[in-house]
Design a protein around this nucleic acid. Structure first.
Lengths: 217, 217
DNA sequence: TCGGTTGCCAAACATTGGTTTGCCAACGGG
DNA sequence: CCCGTTGGCAAACCAATGTTTGGCAACCGA
């Protein structure tokens, strides 16, 4: 029988297991079982469990920063448009790298704590700073009219999105986009967005097509 | 030397330790060390580590539901006012039961997974349902004009608040209230809340007094 | 065909950390 | 004053699980 490198499989299996049980609870045995191998064999690919977590989480994290960079390059669009793109992007990446991105969000704490991941802490800080700058820019040029400090606004928006892991499971691109635009509309116009503000929001997604929601929060 | 029951101390120590290291990483030894006793001695108070987590988390969880109940009893105030109270309440409880409430939010997943905590899962579901109902009521009576489904709106608001654990550490009642009202203003009016919507928001908190923010997100 | 490399098995290892047990000192009500 | 209760110590127990080691079979390029 053929013997291709099963590294992608391993990554996938680890992602699944980490998502279902969390990093601590997940066992190398469980991960290995998904490939039909023994736990010891995993050490042909990585030299520790934590390194496996790193590998899983690296892809979505890097994708996030990469796209953020290209978003920064966009100096033509208005701030609101760029913010919408940011929201869309984050949800798209969440879906695209699904189990991995979920794990990333879920273990931000662990990642930032471990000295192994100083790099991630930095990546995260840069991401947060970018969002904050975007908000501040909008406030400065008059597109936004903030009722709260930019730092707080930025964190609230990011939180709204990041908490999504608890109640949303990706089902497809169309739904992802719909959800992203709903969240963006909410961020932009709040609970009153349907009224007088509707005009400046542009075409809003159809609220009649229900978005799937998990029980957990 | 006197021998008072050190149960409160234990609860406090456990809360601290769970917050700093997370439930899995925290060790009974570490908790015991805070009291100057041995880990085995903890079993005079609880019969398992998980029971200790339960005990820590029970207070804030129950407080949350209790206050939610009294909020439901309020049928006089408008929906917006009740929603503001809800936001204030959640942040107040977060601060009041600080280490414990933090642990509660951080381990929602673990709690809901463990069969031990079926009760909590139910509590959480009821809480979420209440928020959703509030949003829907506001949409129905015209106070709100939603740009997204009530389920999504409710979850976004709750997420915005719950994610707070990652960047906010309580420093005092005044600041708590200020933060709560900023978040509420954001939920109600979004990024444009300072403009045309300012009137209907009433007295907004002074955005000049900076709110302390942690580095993490 | 041959030598090295790869991927895995099989089993043992080590250590952490939750849990159990038996005992003892101090306290406090009757 | 005495006995039951409480809270803690000391040490052992034990299970889970991350990690190591040595070997072997399949594959591959030369």
């Amino acid at each position: 029988m053929p013997r291709p490198s099963r590294w992608p499989e391993l990554l996938h299996a680890a992602g699944q297991e980490f998502r279902e049980h969390g990093y601590e609870q997940a066992t190398l045995e469980g991960i290995a079982a998904r490939l039909g191998i023994l736990k010891g064999s995993i050490y042909n690919y990585v030299s520790s469990k934590e390194e496996l977590l790193l590998a899983v989480v690296e892809q979505p994290a890097r994708a996030l920063l990469d796209e953020l960079e290209s978003l920064r390059a966009d100096t033509e669009s208005g701030v609101a448009v760029r913010l919408r793109e940011l929201v869309r992007m984050q949800i798209r990446i969440f879906s695209e790298y699904y189990p991995a991105a979920f794990v990333y969000l879920q273990h931000l704490g662990h990642l930032e704590a471990s000295p192994q991941f100083a790099e991630f802490k930095q990546m995260d800080a840069r991401y947060m700073a970018a969002v904050e700058a975007l908000v501040a820019e909008g406030a400065a040029n008059g597109e936004f009219s903030l009722a709260a400090e930019p730092r707080v606004v930025a964190r609230a928006i990011v939180g709204m999105i990041d908490w999504m892991q608890h109640w949303f499971t990706p089902h497809g691109e169309e739904e992802d986009l719909r959800l992203a635009d709903q969240l963006f509309a909410l961020a932009l116009g709040g609970l009153a967005a349907g009224g007088s503000m509707r005009a400046m929001l542009g075409a809003l997604p159809d609220p009649l097509t229900r978005i799937e929601v998990e029980t957990r929060r």
